[in-house]
Design a protein around this nucleic acid. Structure first.
Length: 450
RNA sequence: CGGGCCAUAGCGCAGUUAGGUUAGCGCGUUCGUCUGGGGGGCGAAAGGUCGCGAGUUCAAAUCUCGCUGGCCCGACCA
């Protein structure tokens, strides 16, 4: 993509409405534009990030054996009356009437719809286990939306629902989700810690929230520093293996890690040596629940068990805040010049700065680099505009692409271009062919190209 | 939902306390020119129903009332 033909409305000054760093940077980098309080348009650069995050979420869900579908944003009130939540949910639910006066609502979540789908099509324990999920826009009419996409009213969320024949298999589904969530966040370049959490209005007996540590997080969290050392690395996981999933869950839930709602200072001091006790702010980027038969019983979601009698299914639900993650990544990865995207979610993997677009030789080298990268499936963003060099550098730093290639007459005269890593500014001089080869190697090693 | 505050050019702001000719400034935009490796210099230009509606007044961006939208703190929340 060429900057001259792209739509990248960056701002030099910080809009006064934005308070936290991710909101400021998303506005300045031209990723989002507010349409109303807590409601945003996703501009081209922001959409690319959102889509890359969603793609990782989708791939990891499917790797764990979960089945995608797509439920609507508008839902009939009747189903919510059936579960009793139409009245319970309160003002946060956006209620709408259609032209016939029928009550609709803009879905804040989908337990009722999914349970309705399940009960009308699944009859036997033989159809289980089943986990259905979708990635869909939700609306919660927050009293006070803030922090940009981190706490918007409209937000994109992956929500999934597991149906199992009994408690044990539903708990395996719980474990399976925890492992797949750990993989999901790790692939995005994030450290997200599962913390024992309150089950809140969704109810149930088990729940963990996943928190990304960041100063601007909305919750206070307490944890054993040992948990931040853990990572899955490239470990391959058999998601059908109950013991294997349970072992990983044990590993990650043994160290103390709780949000303020469930935090118990005495246990904390008893279990965790003083030098490993940590407290921090955290951004919640996902939550998993096991709630048994809470919805299946009142809504009649039953299957025929092995002995032929009808039993209510055991369920759980699981969510990942896809749009919120775009903000959370920035909170975790930025400096005073702008965003520093992890390679896995960057809107473009590489930015190329042409310092002399009017110089044929320089432009020619840029074109060759672009073609070289594109032939390996790497799409760079080429700044071919007539801006000042300083402005181009500043914009490139702001939008935070992981790698920058600087092409100018000065270097070309000596046969090199410069490759700079955004995260630490490390720069090396390479020939135009070498820079392409080197990047291809890097992205291949990271599994981001073929 | 309690408390506080804001709305003037695309963005950031001044002007409102004490009403008074043609509403300014910086950045951005357009044109010209010099420049050309970290948001450059010079010169010119375009761009405003001062959020909307009533009212007070000889006169309203400025005072009063109502409305709409937005922000911050708290409670709440993926």
């Amino acid at each position: 993509m060429r900057v001259s033909r792209y739509f990248l409305p960056v701002l030099k000054e910080t809009p006064s409405d934005a308070q936290i760093v991710s909101h400021r940077l998303m506005l300045r980098a031209g990723m989002i534009r507010q349409a109303a309080a807590g409601i945003y348009s996703w501009m081209p650069l922001g959409l690319r990030v959102l889509q890359r995050i969603e793609k990782i979420v989708q791939e990891e869900q499917q790797r764990a054996g979960h089945i995608p579908l797509l439920m609507p944003t508008l839902q009939p009130a009747a189903l919510w009356r059936e579960s009793g939540r139409y009245d319970d949910y309160g003002e946060e639910m956006l209620r709408i009437k259609d032209r016939h006066g029928r009550d609709l609502l803009y879905g804040p979540t989908n337990e009722e719809l999914i349970t309705d789908i399940f009960r009308s099509h699944v009859r036997s324990y033989r159809d289980l286990p089943l986990t259905l999920y979708h990635v869909q826009w939700k609306f919660r009419d927050e009293i006070r939306p803030r922090f940009g996409v981190m706490r918007g009213r409209e937000f994109l969320m992956k929500d999934g629902y597991n149906f199992d024949v009994d408690r044990e298999s539903a708990l395996h589904a719980y474990n399976r989700h925890m492992v797949s969530y750990l993989r999901t966040y790790e692939r995005m370049g994030l450290k997200a810690i599962p913390m024992r959490a309150d089950t809140g209005p969704i109810g149930g007996t088990h729940s963990h929230e996943f928190l990304v540590l960041a100063d601007t997080g909305e919750s206070e969290v307490f944890f054993d520093s040992a948990i931040s050392e853990l990572n899955l690395g490239g470990r391959s996981v058999d998601f059908n293996n109950w013991q294997e999933c349970a072992a990983i869950v044990d590993e990650w839930t043994q160290p103390y890690a709780r949000t303020e709602e469930t935090h118990d200072p005495r246990t904390f001091e008893l279990e965790v040596p003083e030098e490993r006790r940590r407290s921090s702010r955290g951004i919640e980027v996902g939550q998993i629940f096991y709630f048994g038969t809470k919805y299946s019983e009142p809504m009649g979601a039953t299957v025929a068990g092995t002995d032929g009698t009808q039993v209510p299914v055991h369920m759980g639900s699981h969510g990942i805040g896809v749009s919120r993650l775009a903000g959370a990544v920035i909170e975790a990865c930025h400096d005073d010049r702008g965003i520093i995207w992890p390679e896995a979610v960057a809107p473009f993997p590489v930015g190329i700065i042409n310092l002399a677009p009017k110089d044929d030789k320089t432009s020619d080298i840029c074109e060759r680099i672009v073609r070289g990268l594109e032939s390996s499936g790497i799409e760079p963003l080429l700044d071919d505009t007539d801006e000042r060099a300083g402005a181009k550098f500043a914009t490139m730093d702001l939008i935070g692409l992981p790698w920058r290639i600087t092409v100018g007459p000065r270097g070309i005269a000596d046969g090199y271009v410069e490759l700079t890593r955004r995260s630490d500014g490390e720069t090396e001089k390479l020939g135009p062919e070498q820079v392409v080869e080197k990047l291809i190697d890097i992205f291949r090693a990271a599994g981001l190209t073929n």
